[in-house]
Design a protein around this nucleic acid. Sequence first.
DNA 1: CTTCAGATGCTCT
DNA 2: GAGCATCTGAAGA
Length: 196
Amino acid sequence: MERLPRDFYNRDTLTVARDLLGCVLAREYAGELLLGRITETEAYIGRCDKACHAYHYKRTRRTETLFARPGTAYLYLIYGMYTCLNLVTEPEGEPAAVLIRGLEPLAGAETMARLRFGRDLGELTAYQRKNFLNGPGKVCKAMSLDRTLDGHDLLTPPLYVLPRQGEIGAIRCGPRIGVDYAQEAKDFPWRFWIEV
DNA sequence: CTTCAGATGCTCT
DNA sequence: GAGCATCTGAAGA
């Protein structure tokens, strides 16, 4: 299956955030292919968005990756112990990205359970199963994604995205999570999700 | 189901 | 030094 091309990412960030729903995040880990269908995203747009790390084109060592060409992975550490994965959008020099907030496991669930809980899939509680990949930190833990992949080109292994296959349900949208500090931007309906 | 506290370290001022 | 695009386990309803 072909990977998403760079032009997919080189578009308006809200469009990319919606179009990524139902696409498949692919991670090659220890010789195994881990796959997850994208079910929840958020858009961050530096040009106009106080919640974006690169608001008003603010350049720091961390935000440098947001200015990279579209189709670049932006990973950063949050709260001292979790990693968040973003996919850089829009033309190079426009700092913007889509945060991957949730996946539905498609392949490699056993390995992902090991990575996330240190236990086999069959040993998980019902609660752990139900909340397996529904959060940005959980996605990165389960796919062994950390800042060593910051700046990675998403058109190459070991991390890339495959096109949507088949239909998806209705796309919902609402305010983003955890950005209450961002004044007027905290209410932007820039979180998108589909029902699993 | 809900709330709540605590863990933890990097980044920027 | 302050704050952060989070998660977990425990406890209560």
